[in-house]
């Protein structure tokens, strides 16, 4: 008997066994992996606080510096809060700051892949889109001010869209000013202000969204409201 016949027989007998979803009542579709597992996998995949920028290492380094202020640690400092947080972070204290991971247990049915992509629409006309990425778990845009090029950190706006499970281990230094805020529409924002950057993180019901740039807090919050679905 030739191997081809054996191959075909094995495919017919075993195909369903290994390809079908194994039944397991204790692991439903809504199963939430432990924080320990998520953290380990995020670290192993290198997705914690990740950013993909093509080409210019100086921009990557500057954006990483910007991203250290990209998440909010709310303990002891609230802006205009009159009620419990709508969503929250899991926080781990580390040297020099804290590591924050989006707590997926505080939201219902977060998206598990990027099914639709959002974009910034409210930037001034002299900003151009320098780079964008899109994967199953994240989508990002890097905008720079056209006239002065991409080497100046204060001309950069970074917008990130992530599935909640991937937004883990973002570092925020102790000296950043942090707080959170709920607007009149009920959207909760976390705001981190450092010397060079302001970062805002929010959850739109499906994805974690991040905006980082050199505008002040009010300008950044206005910019957040211009995020729309990409056509």
């Amino acid at each position: 008997m030739g191997d081809e016949i054996l191959k075909q027989a094995l495919a017919e007998v075993c195909g369903n066994e290994y390809q079908a979803e194994p039944f397991c009542g204790d692991i439903p579709d809504s199963y939430r992996f432990s924080h320990r597992f998520e953290k380990r996998m995020a670290k192993a995949l290198g997705t914690a606080g990740s950013i993909t920028v093509s080409g210019k290492p100086n921009i990557r380094k500057r954006m990483k510096i910007a991203l250290v202020a990209a998440v909010i640690f709310s303990a002891g400092f609230m802006l205009g809060m009159a009620r419990e947080p709508i969503w929250n972070f899991i926080t781990h204290k580390v040297d020099g700051g804290s590591q924050l991971s989006f707590d997926t247990s505080t939201v219902d049915d977060p998206e598990t892949s990027i099914n639709e992509v959002y974009t910034l629409t409210g930037l001034p006309n002299d900003y151009e889109l320098l780079d964008s990425t899109h994967s199953k778990v994240s989508a990002t845009e890097l905008w720079v001010k056209q006239s002065e090029g991409a080497d100046h950190a204060d001309n950069i706006i970074y917008f990130g869209q992530y599935i909640a499970a991937v937004y883990t281990d973002a570092f925020i230094p102790d000296d950043a000013k942090n707080g959170y805020y709920i607007d009149s529409n009920g959207t909760q924002y976390y705001i981190s202000e450092s010397e060079d950057y302001t970062s805002v993180v929010w959850y739109n019901g499906d994805y974690v969204l991040l905006l980082t740039g050199s505008f002040n807090k009010d300008e950044m919050l206005d910019l957040c409201k211009t995020v729309k679905l990409k056509k």
Partner: peptide, 12 residues
């Protein structure tokens, strides 16, 4: 990375 997110529940 894509394979990981699409198949981790099945693997679990």
């Amino acid at each position: 990375e894509t394979f990981y997110f699409e198949n981790r529940l099945k693997g679990m």
